[in-house]
Amino acid sequence: MSSDDKKSELGHGTTGHSWDGIEEWNNPLPRWWLWTFYVTIIWGVLFTIAYPAWPLISSATGGFLSYSTRANVDAEIAAVAERNAPLNERLVAIDLTTIRDDAELHGYAVNKGAAVFRANCSQCHGAGAAGVQASGYPSLLDDAWLWGGEIDQIAYTIRHGIRNEQDPDAHWSEMPAYGDIFTDEEISQVVHYALSLSDSPEHDPALASAGEQLWFDNCAACHGDEGMGMADLGAPNLTDAIWLYGGSLETVTETVTHSRFGIMPAWGLRLTDAEVAATAAYVHQLGGGQ
């Protein structure tokens, strides 16, 4: 190879690498490219000094700029809270039954209530508010309400809860466990009578009529003579298509024998007044509000 061939177009020869006679031209990079590499290293070191970087046993170095994403989020949340403060005041002051007339406030309440619901209520009632029948968590989408489905009744239930010891104003009612009072035969009769109220295909008319007197003596006081229930006592309507724990012969027998004791926390002790009102507005517009 002549010395002329040793020159590449840029005149820097070869790198000296040679494989089976195939050589590699040397095309040197401008040195400033190397400097940018060093600059990135310096930048990286400075970055770890300025910002949180090095992990320690239980935390990390804080950095000279005291930057913290957590503090940023706190500041953003505080800013949003400040921006929403007038809306929250209106939400607390307003008569909830008229909230739909104020489209802006209602829209705010529904969105706020949805967020509160997701964080606090969905664990039992489900993300879609459909409830869990097997556990007796009621669906909030239908038009059957144990303690009333008007918006202020919903707000009361959210605020004070059901059968909890924390709030003296909590809804409270208790159905006796008739397994301790009735014989098995009597339970069977009264269950068939209860199922007859909604014309369940499982009910036996003969057993049902045998249970009629037991019903009027023991059940009608809360559930009503017609079995329509009583919202003030949380006594469910037994004539409709909705069963909190299920409407099969087996489940209703279980309910009558052992009773049920569904509880709900008093959310007024944990949430702000505005959050309670917002959650009520959200639940009320899910499709079953009255």
């Binding site: 489900g126 993300a127 879609g128 459909a130 669906s139 989408l141 239908d142 038009d143 059957a144 309507n237 409709d240 298509a241 909705i242 499709g287 079953g288």
Partner: peptide
């Protein structure tokens, strides 16, 4: 279509989709 739940049973037995 809202699929959680897929349908809701109303007290009069009406089936409602959202």
């Amino acid at each position: 279509p809202i699929r959680n739940p897929t349908f809701v049973t109303m007290s009069d037995g009406t089936i409602r989709n959202t």
